[in-house]
């Protein structure tokens, strides 16, 4: 049984249809990535899974239990943490208070072990533990957002563009940590990423989302070798063997 099953999910913003029947599975222990251009609906999909939005149609199950039309605080209690797009920290709370808030959904009071675990992965946060989160640099805020997600001790973590605005070096570092969290803590990851290179190098399998639909799915290996992915996501120049003009090429899935 898959940890997460999304079936024919449709979601709207008013009259705008952002998801047009999305179906995907995430298996226990996997890192799964979702690729897609700006406005494809990746963030919408993440919000719909974590309960910030309700789908108009379709079903979502987590651990075999239906979670569509469930409030986000109930969903995080079931073990699904969402690290949203764009460094959504609590700006006037300190780094450590932010981390503590990450464990809000859990029983118990003493989370110092978990906080130490976060500091182990992100040592810079320990140095800044008493600083208001709004005064951290963008990259540090992103680390804090991931650390806060970790504090929920989730079985499945949704990561929405963790590399947004980070330097290539820091992007490598963050993805290294994502890999380690997956291997060492056994956290299953559903990962949205614009940088297809690093995403496909990290993930086990991937989905391609376009205009609210899944248009391609497969192992990272297979996606990396697909000519469409190479051209449109990895930015590799096509060898024009048959003198084909670039503008004539069509994505084969349309």
């Amino acid at each position: 049984m898959s940890v997460l099953e999304v079936r024919n999910v449709e979601a709207f913003y008013g009259a705008i249809m952002a998801l047009r029947g999305v179906t995907l599975d995430v298996e226990e222990g996997e890192i799964v990535t979702i690729l897609g251009a700006n406005g494809a609906g990746k963030t919408t999909l993440m919000k719909t899974v974590s309960g910030l939005m309700d789908p108009e149609k379709g079903q979502i199950t987590f651990d075999g239990k239906r979670i569509d039309h469930t409030d986000p605080d109930r969903i995080v209690r079931m073990g699904l943490a969402h690290v949203p797009e764009g460094r959504e920290v609590f700006p006037y709370l300190t780094v450590e208070e932010n981390l503590r808030m990450g464990a809000y959904a859990r029983k118990g009071r003493d989370f110092s072990d978990d906080i130490e675990l976060c500091y182990g992965y992100f040592p810079i946060l320990k140095e800044r533990r008493n600083q208001p989160a709004g005064t951290l640099s963008g990259g540090q805020q992103q680390m804090l957002a991931i650390g806060r997600g970790l504090m929920a001790r989730p079985r499945l973590m949704l990561l929405d563009e963790p590399s947004l605005g980070l330097s290539p070096l820091l992007t490598q570092e963050i993805f290294g940590i994502i890999k380690r969290l997956n291997a060492e803590q056994g956290v299953t990851m559903l990962l949205v990423e614009q940088n297809a290179h690093v995403a496909l190098a990290t993930a086990h399998k991937g989905f391609v989302l376009e205009m609210g639909r899944i248009v391609m799915a497969g192992s990272s290996e297979m996606l990396r070798n697909s000519p469409d992915i190479q051209e449109f996501y990895l930015g590799r120049k096509e060898e024009s063997q048959r003198g084909q003009k670039r503008w004539k090429r069509r994505k084969t899935w349309r």
Binding site: L52, P72, D73, V76, F90, L93
Partner: peptide
Amino acid sequence: TRLGLAAQAASQNQMAAYIVGVPV
């Protein structure tokens, strides 16, 4: 208090409060 901290958090970033499990 835990609830008070959650109230501060929710007033600073409501969306983030939802996703960490605060019943906003």
